[in-house]
Nucleic acid binder design. Structure first.
Length: 299
DNA sequence: CAGGAAGGCCGTCAAAAACC
DNA sequence: GGTTTTTGACGGCCTTCCTG
């Protein structure tokens, strides 16, 4: 198996292995779980898994090995074999409802990621726009504008502005416009509600102002209108690009969140394994004690 | 110290699941 | 049934550790 193939194999089977471990322990089988787990770990690392209950994994392993010799892997076939389980959140929440003490994965972000002190409220954004310098502007329901720097991690770096005179945008006229640079060295973003966000171009800490729009568009303004009002192929292309970037940004964040949940899920399973191992050990000891009591030596 | 192996993290794509 | 969310898979980049 190549380095990459091996790496992917381990990644692919991690979740299935841990789930099987938990499920087998839930069956109530009293075994030497430590030895078994170590054995399973070895099998995972060598890619030679042959545990009967992991028929799917074994199939993958065989496919993978034969693929190494043939040099071609049909990823679609893999997908078909690896039927998806419910989401980590769902599994963990089901686990936690069965077993008290197992933490739930909250719908909202956990407190450790908490709200930065400079943000009063984190309203759910209804529109997200990217500026020509890569910054993101999110416009929330209450007229709050959040500006995020691309280099920042997560919500850190978000800045909130509240529009004092935000009226409802004209129906069917959701328009965002952004300019590369205006003549006075500022950057301007035109947002729904006929507002203009102006970014000062100097200093490490950019400043933003909400202004009433001037009658004429500044030089260099690029307009991205709603699809219904698009005409030229260039505008269509820009709209498509904007949509794609928005989708990519959303998916990037979703992937981050998914990985965070996955880590939490794995942590939870590991702690659960530890608890069950202790339980198992106690039960074995209890069994031995009872055996001693019930079968006294006959001399 | 160079080079390879191993593993972690990230962005992206695509498909399944969930939602409305 | 269309849209959004979630997640497996993949490839790339980076770091760490080990070996010659």
């Amino acid at each position: 198996m190549s380095k990459c193939g091996r790496k992917k194999y381990i990644k692919t089977n991690l979740r299935q292995m841990t789930m099987e471990t938990i499920e087998s322990q839930q069956d109530g089988s009293v075994t030497d779980s430590v030895a078994e787990r170590e054995s399973a770990d070895m099998q995972t690392q060598t890619g030679q898994n042959s545990i009967p209950t992991l028929a799917q994994v074994a199939t993958i392993a065989e496919t993978d090995e034969s693929a190494d010799s043939e040099g071609v892997i049909d990823s679609h076939k893999r997908r078909e074999i690896l039927s998806r389980r419910p989401s980590y959140r769902k599994i963990l929440n089901e686990l936690s409802s069965d077993v008290p003490g197992v933490p739930k994965i909250e719908e909202e972000k956990s407190e450790e990621e908490g709200t930065p002190p400079n943000i009063a409220t984190m309203a759910v954004p209804t529109s997200i726009y990217q500026t020509s310098t890569g910054q993101y502007i999110a416009i929330a329901q209450g007229g709050t504008i959040q500006i995020s720097n691309p280099g920042s991690d997560g919500v850190q770096g978000l800045q909130a502005l509240t529009m004092t005179n935000s009226g409802a945008p004209p129906p069917g006229a959701t328009i965002v416009q952004y300019a590369a640079q205006s003549a006075d060295g500022t950057q301007q973003f035109f947002v729904p509600g006929s507002q203009v966000v102006v970014q000062a171009a100097t200093g490490d800490m950019p400043t933003y102002q909400i202004r009433a729009p001037t009658t004429a568009l500044p030089q260099g303004v690029v307009m991205a209108a709603s699809p219904g009002s698009l005409h030229s192929p260039q505008q269509l292309a820009e709209e498509a690009t904007r949509k794609r970037e928005l989708r990519l940004m959303k998916n990037r964040e979703a992937a981050k969140e998914c990985r965070r949940r996955k880590k939490e899920y794995v942590k939870c399973l590991e702690s659960r394994v530890a608890v069950l191992e202790v339980q198992n050990k106690k039960l074995i000891e209890e069994l031995e004690t009872l055996k001693d009591i019930c079968s006294p030596k006959t001399d």
